[in-house]
Structures are given as C-alpha cells and as structure tokens.
Simulated assay, not measured.
Amino acid sequence: MESYSTQEILSVYTPPYKLNFTDYINCPICEIEIDIFNIIVDENTFIRCEDCEHTIQFKLVKF
C-alpha cells in the first residue's frame, strides 16, 4: 500500500511557484532529505521519496 502526505505552500502569488527558498524537505516516514531546490510546483506536482517510496503532494494555498 502506498503512503501519501500533503505539503502546503502558502503564497500571495498565483501558481506555479519556483521553490528557491528552501533546499530540501524531510520525508515524514523515513526522515530522508528530499532535494526540492528550484523545482517548479503547481497543483499537480508531487515528489516521491527514493528510500521508502512515500509520495508527497503539494497543496498550493493563496492568501
């Protein structure tokens, strides 16, 4: 069974976003660092941990 989680990104700008403000995020399952620097994200973007195959979906929140 695959595991999923959601990572929220808050911004005043409209998507897509270029993630140049952080180098990595930690996998919530195995705590491995996942490199996300300079990737472009929108509502359909996800990343997968290479170690445990956990999928992280990005949720873009405009406020």
Rank of each mutant, 00 (worst) to 15 (best):
E33V: 04
V12I: 13
S3H: 14
N26F: 15
I39S: 01
C30I: 06
P15Y: 04
I40P: 00
F46C: 08
F46D: 08
K18N: 13
T45D: 07
E2W: 04
E2S: 13
I32Q: 15
I36F: 03
D42F: 00
Q57A: 02
I56E: 10
L60V: 00
I36C: 02
I29P: 08
Y13P: 14
M1P: 11
E53Y: 05
T6S: 09
I36V: 01
E43T: 14
E50S: 11
I29K: 12
V41D: 10
F21M: 06
F37H: 14
Y17F: 05
H54F: 04
T14L: 13
K59C: 10
L60P: 01
I39T: 00
T14H: 14
V61Q: 06
N44M: 02
N20G: 12
E33H: 02
T55V: 14
S5G: 07
L10Q: 12
E2A: 15
Y13L: 15
C27R: 07
I29Y: 09
E8D: 13
E43K: 14
L19C: 07
D35G: 02
F37S: 11
T45S: 11
E31T: 12
E8C: 13
S3V: 00
K59E: 07
L19A: 04
F58P: 08
T6A: 10
E43W: 05
D35V: 00
K18H: 04
Y4G: 10
F63N: 07
L19N: 02
P15G: 03
Y13A: 15
S3D: 14
V41K: 00
K18P: 10
L60D: 12
N38R: 04
Q7I: 01
T22V: 09
E53R: 14
V61W: 03
E8N: 14
D23P: 11
D42L: 05
F21Q: 03
V41T: 06
I36R: 02
V12M: 13
S11A: 03
F46T: 02
S3Y: 14
P16Q: 06
Y4E: 15
S11P: 07
F63M: 12
T55R: 12
R48Q: 14
I47P: 05
S11F: 04
K62D: 11
E53D: 15
E2C: 12
D35C: 06
D42P: 05
R48C: 11
D35K: 03
K59W: 03
F63D: 08
T14D: 15
F37K: 09
R48V: 10
